[in-house]
Amino acid sequence: MGYTLNFAVVWRNFDRLLEGLALSLGLAVVSILIGAAVGLAVAFALISKYRAASWPATAYVTLIRNLPILVLVLFAYFALPQMGVRLDKIESFVAVLAIYSGAYLAEVFRAGLLSIPKGLTEAGLAIGLTPMQIRTTIIAPLMLRNVLPSMSSTIISLFKDTSLAAAIAVPELTFQARKINVESFRVIETWIVASALYVATCALIAALMRRIERRLALPR
């Protein structure tokens, strides 16, 4: 008697997996949007000539990128309340993923900013724009277009990081899959289906990003 695949349990609970996926996506979208705003600000700080701005930004990016995200998730949920900051499960996870995305996207944006010729800033100054106006209206849009390809893989891995929310009982996709595993022990079947959902979602994200890339591409 060999091991035969039996997906019945998984299909019976398929709606739970879909609910989990929806929550995963929601967590990712909110966190990445906040993270993108943070990342943009940090990226400008990273390339700033003022040490007071570049140093803390570098410290933030280095620290966050080298820590396992699980440690941050546990810290925000279990240790912060003991210091008087009390966020609920979802808030604390979104905060962590936003901070995490911020650090990764800051690096992506920094590389994009460096590739923008200095002449543009000078041209902007020449026509009387303030440095802030130059950043928001000229540099940031151009940079965003340039970094779209590398942003897409960052976004995909951030989406997959939502699986860590399972550790603090947020009922996203991984949590639901584990829940099904625990009772049915159809571990292999459940993970096949769950990862197919992850792969499909990642493929959709990648396709969406490519589409945006094409839309925004400069006519050649």
Partner: peptide
């Protein structure tokens, strides 16, 4: 790929 085999009894 996922057929896990075992000894026959």
């Amino acid at each position: 790929v996922f057929l896990l085999l075992s000894t026959s009894a």
